[in-house]
């Protein structure tokens, strides 16, 4: 991209981060009272809310019901004001449908689905403000919401993106870096077993560099895992403290 240096000679990115640095992550569990589980996450300027309902009876058509495992139902939508230019519809467009599908696949792999046959778990993700890495933030928020809802997971699900600029892999890329046209790798892993549950790459990247970028992205996922884990522990201890004092 002309005139825009994604990585300066000193090794700084546009927003002042170094190549291996994540954006600031802030999160909170239990945002809503009515949902069975909910969470909010801010990754830099990307803000995502997730709510989980269930497990409950299968809603709508019975044909969707699975005999041996739970049906994971996702919906990804973006607030109409979340992007720079106003979106006309919050959901239903191609991109959101694709995102919904990706989320479903991701969580199908992470939830211990055989525990709840013939039931349904709803995961609703709402992007309030988008600044790159929407999918990653959505996955991280949904993980927290699932934990808040007490749904058994194989492990935390952590997602992180990475790009490749000037022969250097950069982690957790923002909207500006995404739109630069460089390669983008999105990885979702289960950090403990180091299994990859979702992997997507856009644009061209030389094979030799793939493992480098993948390593950086996985490292990002593990860093995110540490942050999420701390948030969950904080939340649980706070909740149990409140429970103790009221007793």
């Amino acid at each position: 991209m002309a005139g825009l240096e994604l990585l300066s000679d000193q090794g700084f990115r546009i927003d002042g981060r170094r190549s291996h640095e994540l954006r600031k992550i802030q999160c909170r569990l239990g945002v809503f009272k009515q949902a069975d589980g909910s969470a909010y996450i801010e990754q830099g300027n990307t803000k995502v809310l997730a709510a989980v309902y269930g497990p409950h009876e299968v809603k709508g058509s019975r044909a969707k019901m699975l005999q041996d495992k739970v049906l994971v139902n996702c919906q990804y939508s973006m607030a109409t004001f979340s992007t720079g230019e106003r979106k006309r519809r919050p959901r239903g467009d191609r991109k959101s449908t694709e995102m919904t599908m990706h989320l479903k696949q991701t969580f199908d792999a992470a939830i211990i689905t055989n525990l709840y046959p013939r039931s349904q778990i709803d995961i609703y993700v709402e992007v309030l403000q988008s600044d790159g890495g929407n999918y990653c933030a959505s996955v991280n928020a949904a993980t927290l919401a699932l934990i808040d809802a007490g749904i058994p997971l194989k492990d935390y699900v952590c997602a992180c993106s990475a790009g490749f600029v000037n022969d250097t892999p950069i982690v957790d890329i923002s909207y500006l870096e995404e739109s630069g046209g460089g390669p983008e790798l999105i990885v979702t892993i289960l950090p403990k077993s180091e299994q990859i549950v979702f992997l997507e790459q856009n644009s061209r990247l030389h094979e030799d560099n793939l493992s480098k970028v993948l390593d950086v992205a996985s490292k990002g996922c593990k860093d995110i895992y540490a942050i999420l884990d701390r948030a969950v522990r904080d939340h649980v201890s706070k909740v149990s403290n409140v429970a103790n004092t009221t007793e």
Binding site: Q34, Y53, S77, Y124
Partner: peptide, 11 residues
Amino acid sequence: DCSANATPEFE
């Protein structure tokens, strides 16, 4: 926009 976050019926 009634987000499905509010209730699954809004999906």
